[in-house]
Amino acid sequence: MKSAEVRIRAESPESPTRVSGRIHAGYLLLVGFTHGDTDTELEWMTDKVICLRLFPDEEQRMNRDIQEHGGALLVVSQFTLYADVRKGRRPSFIDAAKPEPAEVLYNRFVMGLRQRGLQVETGEFGAMMDVELVNDGPVTILIERDAGPE
C-alpha cells in the first residue's frame, strides 16, 4: 500500500472532518471481531500481520515483512466485515461482536502491535469514518483465523 488515511466525520455538516491516522507505505488493516474472539485470536492476528511477507525484495518478489520494509499500520475498526447477506436484502450483523467487547479487543490488538515495535495509527472505534487508500497492486488479503485447531 502506498498510503492510507482515515478521517473522522464531524457531528454537524458545518464542522470539518479531522484526520485521525495517516501512513505511507504499510498496511491498512480493516479489523472486525466476532463472538468468542479472545487473546488467542489477538496473538495469532498480531503474529500473522507482523510475519506476512508482502513487500518486494530486490527481485520484486513478495519476500519482506512489514518490519523489514519499515512500513507502518493504519488500523480501523470495521464490524461490517461480518455482514451476512446470504438471506434477504439487508445485511445481518449478528456475527459481529457487540460494541463493548469489540472495542476492548480492538484496543488490545492495537496495543499488541505497538508493543512489538510497529508504528500504528488508528481510526476511532465506533465513529463515522472516511477511509482513503492508495493501493499498490491491487493486493488485498483477507486474514481470518479458522475456529478449528491449527
Rank of each mutant, 00 (worst) to 15 (best):
D37E: 08
G70C: 09
E103M: 06
Q67W: 09
E124R: 14
T34H: 02
W44G: 03
D146K: 07
Q78R: 06
A72Y: 05
R116L: 15
I141M: 13
G112K: 12
L113Q: 12
D39G: 15
S20D: 14
G70P: 05
R64G: 10
P16F: 02
H69F: 13
V120F: 09
L113C: 14
M45R: 00
E121V: 14
R114Q: 15
R7S: 07
M45I: 06
P99V: 12
S12W: 01
V85D: 00
V49E: 06
R86A: 00
S12T: 11
E132R: 09
V104C: 01
S92R: 08
L28Y: 05
L28M: 00
H24I: 02
R116P: 15
M1N: 02
E11A: 06
R145G: 02
F93V: 12
A25K: 01
I94E: 13
V76H: 05
D37C: 04
M1Q: 05
R108A: 07
M129W: 14
Q67K: 12
L30V: 10
M111A: 14
G36D: 12
T140D: 06
G70D: 08
A127T: 13
D130H: 14
V85C: 13
E121K: 11
K2H: 10
G36M: 10
H69T: 06
G112F: 10
E100Q: 13
V110F: 03
Y106G: 03
L29Q: 00
G88A: 13
E43V: 09
P56Q: 04
I94G: 08
L74R: 05
G32I: 05
D95V: 01
L113P: 10
D84T: 03
E132V: 15
G123S: 12
A25C: 07
R116C: 15
D37V: 07
K98Q: 10
Q60C: 10
E59G: 12
S12P: 03
N107K: 00
G26V: 01
L81G: 00
Q67P: 02
W44R: 00
L30Y: 04
L113E: 12
D146R: 06
R61I: 07
T40M: 11
H35A: 13
L29R: 00
R7V: 04
L29I: 14
F55H: 02
A102C: 07
I141F: 04
D65E: 11
P16T: 11
I143C: 11
W44I: 06
V75S: 03
D39E: 15
L133F: 08
N135S: 03
K87G: 12
E5N: 05
L30P: 00
P99E: 02
Y82M: 06
L81F: 09
E132S: 09
T80L: 00
F125I: 14
T17M: 08
N63Y: 14
E150H: 03
V104D: 07
A127S: 15
Q60W: 06
L142M: 09
A83P: 00
L28H: 02
V6L: 08
V139P: 02
V49N: 01
M111I: 13
A127V: 13
T46H: 05
A10I: 14
E124H: 09
